[in-house]
Simulated assay, not measured.
Amino acid sequence: MSDFVKDKVVVVTGAGAGIGRDFALQFAANGAKVVVNDLGRNAETGEFAAERVVAEIKEAGGQAVASTDSVADWDSAQKIVQAALDTFGRIDCVVNNAGIVRDRMFFNMSLDEWKAVVDVHLNGSFFVARAAAPHFKAQNGGSFVHMTSTSGLIGNIGQANYSAAKMGVVGLSKSIALDMAKFNVRSNCIAPWAWTAMTASIPSETPEQKARVEILKRMESRKIAPLAVYLASDQAAKVSGQIFGVRANEIYFFNQIRMIRSLHRDGGWTPEAIAEQVMPAFESSFFPNVPSMALTPWDPV
């Protein structure tokens, strides 16, 4: 067992399976005390997935406690953080990993499909982070690690709800980093590539979709956890407000939106002048309107 995050208390949401489980196991293996949060349970036995992961951690000599509250409810989110305080007496890091997908083309997407995804990804990230914030502020330190996605950073087909929520998480993380910097609290994002139960629900009807799924199946979720452990550690004291990505053995660093061109005109602009001068000047800098996989090709060797 490593001591990289020794005695830090870490809440990992959506930790019953997939990437979240890998986070919980690796945090524990690196010395952290882990709140394993997941409301899912085995349909046959009724066992909560979180309890199963806690058992794995304890069998390996680590410390963990299960939380089965929902991130998508304000009061339940408070209970998730309280589980850390009640069991371990403090909280040092929140990993906002819980997520669902309800993929549908935008013109067919229902209100329920929109709200369900936004409630878990965006509202859930805010609720749990907000519950931890007063404790981080009081102890003058803490770290947030949020899961975003290239579906939000770049865009994707059939994922308007997921893309909007994941881009919203980036804005949330940046604002947390700015608002809480004076309290030595950090906030960063990870965009993971991995095959999990959530990505397994991605539609695979067209040849392009099937090819995308086959690529995802070759990306191991366990490869993402080391970056999350690092971002929670004291070694990452100078890292905040950033966006990273992990794909198999690669770690990415993403740029952020900044102004890249400007045009000034005395007296202001008319629609005609914009058409004649602004757009022709800007057009060479336009970004392609393509899904994320087109800009993140992967050919593993």
Rank of each mutant, 00 (worst) to 15 (best):
M1A: 15
D3W: 03
D3T: 14
V5S: 04
V9F: 08
G14Q: 01
G18Y: 00
G20E: 08
R21L: 05
L25H: 03
F27W: 02
N30S: 13
N30V: 08
V34T: 09
R41K: 15
A49E: 15
A66Q: 10
A66W: 01
S67T: 11
V71R: 02
Q78H: 13
Q82M: 07
A84M: 09
G89F: 08
C93P: 05
N97V: 06
M105Y: 14
F106H: 13
F106L: 15
N108I: 02
L111P: 05
W114R: 05
W114G: 03
V117K: 04
V118H: 07
V118S: 13
A132C: 07
A132W: 01
A138G: 10
Q139M: 05
N140E: 12
G141H: 00
S149P: 02
G152K: 09
N156T: 12
N161K: 05
Y162K: 06
M167I: 15
G168C: 05
L172H: 04
K182T: 13
F183V: 06
V185E: 04
C189R: 01
P192C: 02
T206L: 12
V213T: 06
I215W: 04
R222V: 06
L227P: 10
A228G: 12
Q235E: 14
K238W: 10
G241C: 01
R247L: 00
R247F: 03
R247G: 07
R247S: 01
E250T: 00
E250D: 10
Y252K: 03
F253A: 14
S262I: 07
T270F: 02
I274P: 09
Q277A: 14
S284G: 10
S284N: 12
P291I: 04
P291S: 10
M293A: 12
A294H: 11
T296D: 14
T296R: 11
D299V: 14
